[in-house]
Design a protein around this nucleic acid. Structure first.
Lengths: 285, 285
DNA sequence: CGCGACCAATACCCGTGCGGTATCGCCGCC
DNA sequence: GGCGGCGATACCGCACGGGTATTGGTCGCG
């Protein structure tokens, strides 16, 4: 499975073999064996390049979850034996700052609370940390993060705003629409790295964190649509305008299914009690 | 991992080896290697019997999900290559009968709908079918089924009722509480098989499906607490009484996370549009 | 149009590791 | 105290995974 994922990602036996620290021929054979075992063609080979078949794409997705599950199994087992009952909480650096500190305070005040180690990380990372067992619980943000495969509780929903350089012509508008924001060719939206660490193509600067982003905006090189709770991290050289038709962002607390940890359960309970989940009810048309 | 699950379930190397169709010594060594690789003691050995350590219990749970994921990967890949885009829907036999037929009719009327193969199965089964990729989508019933690890949409919530033999002294009551039901020593609750196929210990007859159950009740040998929508399957030799304090049962449609199948997505959309989800809002205290 | 470069597949070889058989050591039970 | 059950150890053989050398087919370039 590791082999197949490597080949499917590189689409090149030689490079995949290099990544796996092995020679190319055994890798070729291993994939052939896999195909024979499954009775399925996984790769279209054109001697010059290879491409995934439809079945291959399915297996790539499934194999990734298998490998994540294996990694999580090892890690969780080791940690269960370690004895220390601490809990690891992952959250995107900068996001939901106030909620996070409230949660930590409230949980620490609980009787019998365990030590909480907070991992602050880049966008998209908490998800994979949770999936591979490096974190026990995470704060995610729909619809940016995909919560598929986790148990979640909604904590907070908020509208998004666009951040503009101070003094921009649009900065005085009462609100903007998404199409208006996208139409600003002089202020492109930034490109965040994908889960593989590479940036998508397109206009706009590459950014890795909010500090970079806000600096670029202040310099008049970009704009960005962000949840409104991030406004307290802006300097006074920014302006914000609500974008009512941007999707609302929901902060959720997520944990792996089948988690039997008391600490995680307590943490989740504390989080849900923290706020009466304002605006949680979906507004019907 | 297969080895460890077998040993952990049997708690006996000999039987586990037999189940794995191998000899006992290699199995012992394999588990020892696993323990060394992880640097963790998984089993407490007392030469006479073995018991899981806490870490072992964690690994057992994790290993099961890994094995399920592997099985699902194989099956889904094979099916993706098979070409036929049909979708497999799993549901407990008898439960949500009306909802199921409505769903199938509505989906068949959709443009571009695929063939739906319905698997009717015993209690608890749909969950594992979904987890191992034998089914693409399932109807589950909280809180009986655990929906952990799946994406779900609530379809319907209903109260539960107790089914009594016709003419039973309690049959004329307007409602009963759970403690009153449990206190009926002459009418014990039945024992359903667990996910391993074995029945828990206790009083009460062993049952495998609703037909058995209803017959036993009619004979005055048991009673049962069931969702009220099952009442239309009862014969007239039964009586039902609402049990307001029994947990409400929610029928949900569940599918594996990361499912990219159009047919599954359509089916889910059809299901959610089927009914305006009556009584979906939780009633706050 | 032919030569060279690139890339996956094949041929062949070797070492490790997994599984099997035989046996031991330990404990509980009659 | 002897026997039986169970897990661990010792030793052996083979099969499979991985390495090196080479082939075969296809594209690009002169």
């Amino acid at each position: 499975m590791r082999y197949f994922v490597a080949v499917a990602e590189e689409l090149h036996f030689g490079r995949a073999a290099q990544r796996l620290a092995m020679a190319q021929p055994p890798l070729s054979r291993a994939i052939q064996q896999l195909e024979r075992r499954l009775g399925v063609v996984l790769l279209h080979r054109t001697t010059r390049a290879i491409a995934l078949t439809e079945a291959g794409a399915v297996l790539l997705r499934e194999a990734r979850t298998v490998l994540d599950a294996v990694e999580a199994a090892e890690r969780r087992t080791r940690r269960a034996a370690g004895g220390q009952p601490g809990v690891v909480l992952a959250a995107k650096a900068g996001a939901s700052r106030e909620l996070l500190s409230k949660l930590l305070d409230a949980y620490a005040a609980e009787p019998g609370s365990a030590a909480v180690e907070v991992m602050l990380c880049g966008p998209g990372e908490p998800e994979s940390l949770l999936r591979t067992g490096r974190a026990d619980v995470a704060l995610l943000h729909r619809p940016y993060d995909t919560t598929a495969g986790f148990d979640t509780e909604d904590l907070h929903t908020e509208q998004q705003v666009v951040v503009l350089p101070k003094g921009h012509p649009l900065a005085n508008r009462a609100h903007l629409s998404l199409v208006e924001v996208n139409a600003q060719a002089d202020l492109p939206l930034p490109r965040w790295p994908g889960r593989d660490g590479s940036h998508p193509d397109g206009p706009g600067p590459q950014v890795r964190d909010h500090t970079q982003l806000f600096q670029l905006i202040a310099l008049g090189l970009a704009c960005a649509v962000i949840p409104e709770s991030l406004r307290d991290q802006l300097r006074d050289d920014h302006a914000i305008v609500p974008v009512p038709d941007a999707p609302a962002v929901t902060t959720v607390i997520a944990w792996p299914p089948h988690s039997r940890s008391k600490a995680v359960a307590d943490l989740v309970r504390t989080a849900t009690r923290l706020q009466p989940t304002p605006a949680a009810a979906p507004t019907p048309a």
